[in-house]
Design a protein around this nucleic acid. Sequence first.
DNA 1: TCGTCACTGGAAACCGTTTTCCTTCACGAT
DNA 2: ATCGTGAAGGAAAACGGTTTCCAGTGACGA
Lengths: 344, 344
Amino acid sequence: MATIKDVAQAAGVAPSTVSYVLSGSRKISAETRAAVQAAVDELGYHPNAGARSLRSTRTDVLALALPLSGTGYLPVGGRFMYGLSEAAGKHGYLVLLVTPPGSGDAGAGLERAARSRFADAAVLMGVEMEDPRVAAMRALDFPVALIGHPADESAAPWTDLDWEESALASVRALRDAGHRRVLYLATVEEDVGTGRTYSVRGIRGAARAAAELAAHVDVCHSSGDPAELYRRLDARFDSADPPTALAVQHPAAIPGILRHLAARGVQVPRDVSLVAVGSFPEDLGGLDVTRIELPVAEMSAAVTRLAAEAVEAAGDPGRAGGDSAPHRLIPPRMIRGSTVAPAP
Amino acid sequence: MATIKDVAQAAGVAPSTVSYVLSGSRKISAETRAAVQAAVDELGYHPNAGARSLRSTRTDVLALALPLSGTGYLPVGGRFMYGLSEAAGKHGYLVLLVTPPGSGDAGAGLERAARSRFADAAVLMGVEMEDPRVAAMRALDFPVALIGHPADESAAPWTDLDWEESALASVRALRDAGHRRVLYLATVEEDVGTGRTYSVRGIRGAARAAAELAAHVDVCHSSGDPAELYRRLDARFDSADPPTALAVQHPAAIPGILRHLAARGVQVPRDVSLVAVGSFPEDLGGLDVTRIELPVAEMSAAVTRLAAEAVEAAGDPGRAGGDSAPHRLIPPRMIRGSTVAPAP
DNA sequence: TCGTCACTGGAAACCGTTTTCCTTCACGAT
DNA sequence: ATCGTGAAGGAAAACGGTTTCCAGTGACGA
């Protein structure tokens, strides 16, 4: 593999000159620059990442800390890995995956990555209202940016879909169609239990909807076990006063829910209306679900920018540790489909 | 951040001794070892990744090269990222994501990662029968391991589900139930077009099934556009001699297919039997699909081992560039569900 | 008594960059 | 003629580890 010395020799200049040409941090005469550039292209030279990071304390890598969901695999994780990888690439960053090993030890891999400077900053997914990782990274002076909206808004830069408004809007759409008994199917209960911000804020929005919209909103936690989920749905639909509409914050379960309801003779939207909130990948046989999409690309771009700014700020002593962290709260955008019908 | 010198000073030894204690590459007396270990724990010392890789030419990182599918996001990609991250972790590796930027330039990010030694080896996903990335990495002397079964089996170490046998087995299961007209729904046509190994070998298996099992097997490419897919299905089901069974190698489309068929009045398994081949994440309302699962965890473990061996071999001049590359072809395992009924 | 070994552990070279100093040269002002 | 100034680029010192030497100490057989 070619080193900077090889390039320097080929171009007839000193290694430092090559470095300056490549970083552009010093004025270089046009002809030397051309000679160096030619040598670089000729040799296919790329600076050694280890050496560069050793000297400059920059790795051009972002660590993405993924949690395991209760069920192990987090479907939305895949979309964010792609989204972040693309957004980070535009800023010149690569993405390093940090997943917790099998079980327990949620932050061990992350701490190792931070302490040994594998990355310049960490992007945290699956953020909890009081997330211990934030304090841990702060203790290491390691920049972070969150995908999630924690209780302490100024603890770290963050971005998120406004889940509270999303839940509210989803119920409002149903209320506007005349539905007075709405079942809000929240995220899986493990996520509620660990205090994932999207879970907590979604439920909060549903509660506000009940209070502000004069509707009866029944909040039901979803389950990673489909059979258990269907039992809970059955209990509601078997009741004396069954819901006429469903707002679902667990979109991965929707294909199953639709089939299960169909097996009971319940059709969407004939018998029950449906609004989905969250990442909604697959097609459903042409059924056009009314929904609020999770803006993965937008969030990825935002969190990348926040992370990059946090890296800059950490390098620059004046700006570091400012009073309040920047954030970007994304308002919901409702996509009108064909799954909301007027209430009977 | 603590350096090796800080640890050495705290333990009252030389830096080299700390290094030896940590790497275990030299005998150290029990008491020195204990003193060093105590200092390490005390200071929370982790060796700087850049410095370590600079000297030792090991980064303990695997690059995962993901392709974009025709539709952009590759659903199975997410599962492999998790699977590989976990498997790699057990071998002491972290995983670096290398996705192609927006469009084109399929190998540019990968080549940069290799040339600047961001990683010790690359794991390639979305492998094509004649994959140009393999030759590119060989030219750089960069170790690779493939998730996919390319035309030249000895070009690089690889692992894969035996898609040909899987397709064959899926049709055989239907044939054994008496079905003589089987529709084999292959992968999306972009994947067939670019020669993805799973696409090509799946179709090959379906063709063998037709020849060996005395069944009529109609191979239909799937489409990333659901409407187009349903048009193709309709054409088959509207024909004079419609299929009585479906083998589907595009599992992400199955929820939609089931709904679409149901809208035509076609029920599974009453009117048509179904076998799925591939990664099958979600629940389908309690419908227990007969299927051959993609063994993501097993493949991740295998490819990690192959990659680790390739790294060792590259370091060891004697073993490098041996005659034929190792591989691991995983036989299909059929999971019997309730979606195959006897033919009418 | 002396050379030879085994066993520990330290000193120092080295990995490939970036960055801080310096040197050189040309040119205009004093 | 001397000096100050600015432009261009080179020499060398880090950065934080790993690894190759080398040194000191007892033990032991000749």
